[in-house]
Design a protein around this nucleic acid. Structure first.
Lengths: 256, 256
DNA sequence: AAGTGGTCTAGACCACCAT
DNA sequence: TGGTGGTCTAGACCACTTA
C-alpha cells in the first residue's frame, strides 16, 4: 500500500483533522479525545498498542509515536509488560509535578492542608483573566494553610470557576481522601495536566504574618499558579505565600 | 540479519557500554562523545542521518531515536531540508532557556549586563559544594548588574572554577560579543546544557538596595542557579537578587 | 504460556531547502 | 535536481508481567 494514499485517506476520514497534519498527530488527537470523553478512566489501562493500531488503521510505529507524546505530557503512563494507563492524580504525582517547595536541606516532606475558609463570590479582573471567564462570573474561593513537618509554611488562596465545579461543597473539599487535584479529577472529571507559575518577593501583611508566624513585613515568596487541563484550558488560579526562611522553591527545568 | 545478534555484537564492540543498554542509547553516547571531543563544532552540521547510520552500523530509525533525545535535550537542533546542527549558545537560546525574568505585563526585554567586579579567590563551602570542587580551590567571582529597559533590576554574583576556565580575564568577560554562556562555549569549550534553580524571598541589604535603587530591607527574589554541562557536571554557580516590584520570575514547566 | 510494551530493522515516500 | 530531515509501514524479536 502506498503510505501517502493511506495518509490522505485517513486525513479525510478523521473529522476535525488539520490540513497536512501528520497521521500520528491525528491519532494523538483521537486518543486525547477518547480519554476526555471518559471512555478510558484515569487509573485504568487503555487497549494494547496492537489493538489500537488496528482500531485506527495505522502501523504500530505510528500509534507508538502518538502515545510517546502523550506519555511525555504525562497524560498516559507506560508500564512494560502491564500496559498503558491513563494517569490518575495521586499524592506522588502532585508532589513530583506540582509541589515545588522543599526544605533548605533538600528534604521534601508532603504538606498537611488545613482549610481556613470556603466561600463563593464573583470573579474580579485578575481571576477572570487567569481563569478565562467573565468578570463577575461565580467562583469558589478556598483559603488553606499548608504545614511542612508541623510548621505553617504556605498560605494558599485558590480560585476556581463555579461553572467548572458545579455543586462543590466545603465538606467535599475538606474531607477529600487524597490531593486537591485528585478531587477535581474524581468528582468533577477535570484532569490538571500542567501548570504555569509566576513568582515574586513580597512583604508579609499583618494577617498572613500572624498566620505563618513571621514578622510583619517579612519577605515572602509569592507564587501565582494557573493550573491547566487539556488544550491549555485554565482550571484553577492559586496564589501562594511561602515563608522561605528555611524552605525554598526549586525549578529543575529541562530535565523531565 | 537477526536484530538481537546485531545488538549483542555492537554492545560488545562499543567500549564503555552499559550491560543490556539499548543500542540507541549507545549511539547517543557515541554522538555526545563525538561532540564533546570537538569533532563537530557548535553551530555546524553533523553528518546526515543516513551517513551516521552507516558509520555506526545501525538502522536509520535507531539513529533517529538517539538524535531525538539529543534534540530534546537541546544539544542538537534539527532543521528539515538543511541538516542537524550542534546547538550554539546565542542570545535567543539564553533568553528562552536560561533567563526567566519578565516584566509583569509579560514583555521580555533582553538584559544589559554591566560588570562591577572580576576577582579571583578561594572556594568557600557553598561554592565548593555547588561546583563540585574542593574548599579552597581557586575560583573566579564576577559581579554584574543587569538592566531591563534601562532599569537596574538584577544583581548577579557568578562563581566559576578557575580550573575549568584557565586564563579567563576581566577584559574577556567584559568585552564578550555575545552572552556569557557563549563565552564559556567559544573560548573555553564548555557548553551549558541545562540549569537547576532554587528560589527564596530575602531582604535587600544596604549595598544591594542602593545598587538596585530599592528601600533597605525591601523584599528581593533570590535565585541560586547551578549551570550544568554534559553528564550533569556543574560549571557555574550564580546567585541573583531580583527586584520583583514590576518584574516576575516565570516557570512554565512540563511544556517543553 | 500468553500478552504487554520496548527495541531494531529495512525500505518507501513526503516536505523542505539549497543549488 | 539532489540532499536533508519527517512520516509511515510491516514485521521480527526482546524484556517484563501476570496467571
Amino acid at each position: 500500500m502506498n503510505p501517502a494514499d493511506d495518509h490522505n485517506l485517513h486525513a479525510r476520514l478523521m473529522a476535525g483533522a488539520a490540513p497536512d497534519s501528520p497521521l500520528y498527530k491525528e491519532v494523538k488527537r483521537l486518543l486525547t479525545q477518547t480519554i476526555q470523553a471518559g471512555e478510558w478512566k484515569p487509573g485504568t489501562a487503555i487497549p494494547s498498542e496492537r489493538q489500537l493500531s488496528a482500531r485506527f488503521h495505522v502501523a504500530v510505529g505510528t500509534l507508538r509515536k502518538a502515545v510517546d507524546e502523550l506519555v511525555q505530557e504525562r497524560i498516559l503512563i507506560r508500564q512494560q509488560g502491564r500496559g498503558t494507563f491513563v494517569s490518575a492524580h495521586n499524592r506522588d504525582r502532585m508532589m513530583f509535578h506540582f509541589f515545588h517547595i522543599q526544605r533548605e536541606d533538600g528534604d521534601k516532606p508532603a504538606p498537611d492542608v488545613e482549610m481556613l475558609s470556603f466561600k463563593t463570590g464573583r470573579a474580579d479582573d485578575e481571576e477572570a483573566a487567569r481563569l478565562g471567564i467573565g468578570v463577575g462570573d461565580r467562583v469558589f474561593r478556598i483559603a488553606n494553610v499548608l504545614s511542612l513537618a508541623g510548621d505553617r509554611i504556605i498560605f494558599d488562596r485558590i480560585s476556581i470557576a463555579k461553572a467548572l465545579f458545579p455543586g462543590m461543597t466545603a465538606a467535599q473539599f475538606k474531607n477529600r481522601p487524597s490531593t486537591i487535584y485528585h478531587l477535581y479529577q474524581s468528582a468533577f472529571g477535570i484532569t490538571v495536566v500542567r501548570s504555569a507559575e509566576r513568582l515574586r518577593a513580597v512583604r508579609a501583611d499583618p494577617e498572613v504574618a500572624q498566620l505563618l508566624d513571621v514578622a510583619k513585613g517579612a519577605p515572602l515568596l509569592e507564587i501565582r499558579r494557573v493550573a491547566l487541563t487539556f488544550h491549555d484550558q485554565p482550571v484553577e488560579y492559586r496564589r501562594s505565600l511561602v515563608d522561605t526562611e528555611h524552605h525554598e522553591y526549586f525549578s529543575d527545568l529541562a530535565k523531565s
